[in-house]
Design a protein around this nucleic acid. Structure first.
Lengths: 249, 249
DNA sequence: TTGTATCGAACGAACGTTCGCTATATGGTT
DNA sequence: AACCATATAGCGAACGTTCGTTCGATACAA
């Protein structure tokens, strides 16, 4: 059966449950590293700290963000912060871990739900864009601060990135094997697709300024990739279900 | 007349003269801000400082790089550095200024030398890749540290980025007007092309590890872009003049 | 009264930057 | 050629500031 491309709204709903699950997992993992016992206040403040860190670090860089800045942004005192984190490095570790699992899981689910290389490719593209849309601050942080991370986390970030790219490589290989996709180096193609996908969260300010929605960008990427990858003749992709104003002058 | 796509070697030769010219301009601009009078030693040490800064900052971030690190890397003492720069901020300004002019100039020259939208697009893609290949450390630095720059330089960096994108937008518009290029939002297309181009210097470690040369990547980008942008039927681009082993397994 | 969450002053380390000093090169005078 | 006077390149200890982090005091809840 042919799936129509999932919309951002549909993704958001499915995503919410996955996120709370993983968020709870993360909290339980780090419960023993916090000095705060009551779950309610602990969870709330931890989230506040993470959000504030992403906000500050994405504005001026993680190294430039002092714990006094973070203290002011969260409303907690300098000493109070240390009831939740062991150190500044621990904070960056905490944030990094939070997202890595989510990415792979989310992408793999989306791919598994689609049938055939073309639909799998579409699903992967959309899932990646929708995921990075919902967690843009995290992805931006993870990309920009990757080289400032502790050794272990840097490696993990790179491995995660490679894994995502290999998901695309696999889809392309399968499509080529079935004769649906044109020949060409699958690794190189996958890398270029990922470059297009990453641009969405790296230059989000630009896209927002131009009123380009995720759905709109997803269509554009899908179009470019399919033009490059499908064997001709290429039937133009059907307009997506959303009523975006993508291409008006 | 139909130009064959210029090779990286050809670009390098043309580039060298342009670089020494601008490098000298930069030096003369900052001569009055240095305490060192003799041109020979001043120029050599200034270059050493800039190179070391790019090396260190690209490894661990500009903020994390201390002037003591820089002192060790350059062989100059901490105090000695201040004969060449006014402050750490001044250093980042100096580096930033060095490259901005170069980018636009180089691209505009390449575009002007080509005839017709398709050749102009090819020329722009290749020029951008070749330029960022020769000055990869600078471009990486400029991208990663953009938000840590002083206010004025941040603006300048953004303006430069927008200007580059507009060069591509212009080419696409011209091609669409002539009926050579398929319809589609030119800004969105230009943005995606730029994403592909930036990936070259942002993920250079990956490409190097996979033995992908610039020429090879240039062909791949050109192919994908032309597939997406040309009106069909699309005649496959001729193999470039270089003897790269792009697609062997 | 006991336990917990939060505070803010305080500490040592590391940072950017300054400054008085030394070593070396330069150039005019004997 | 030998000498001194002067200017300059470079050094590294030291300064004040800011950083991450600690810790005893405090406020509040049970």
């Amino acid at each position: 059966m042919q799936h129509s491309a999932p919309s951002f709204r549909e993704f958001s709903d499915r995503f919410r449950s996955l996120e709370t699950t993983l968020s709870r997992e993360l909290f339980r993992e780090h419960r023993d590293q916090m000095r705060v016992k009551k779950e309610e206040t602990a969870a709330e403040n931890l989230r506040r700290i993470i959000d504030a860190t992403l906000r500050l670090a994405n504005r001026k860089g993680f190294q430039s963000m002092s714990l006094r800045d973070l203290s002011a942004e969260t409303g907690l005192s300098a000493g109070g912060l240390y009831a939740y984190i062991r150190s500044k490095d621990d904070l960056v570790r905490l944030i990094q871990r939070h997202g890595v699992a989510l990415t792979l899981r989310s992408l793999e689910d989306a791919i598994a739900a689609a049938d055939g290389p073309r639909d799998k490719l579409r699903a992967a593209i959309r899932a990646h864009l929708f995921l990075t849309e919902t967690m843009q601050p995290w992805f931006y942080f993870s990309y920009m601060e990757a080289k400032n991370l502790p050794r272990r986390e840097t490696r993990e970030a790179i491995r995660s990135e490679v894994a995502v790219e290999e998901l695309f490589t696999g889809i392309i290989r399968a499509g080529q094997a079935r004769g649906v996709f044109r020949n060409g180096d699958p690794q190189l193609l996958a890398g270029m697709i990922k470059a297009l996908l990453q641009d969405w969260y790296l230059k989000r300010w630009k896209h927002r300024q131009r009123n380009v929605s995720v759905e709109c960008y997803a269509d554009a990427v899908q179009n470019m990739v399919e033009h490059a990858v499908l064997v001709p003749p290429y039937d133009e992709a059907p307009a997506a279900a959303h009523n975006a104003t993508c291409e008006e002058g």
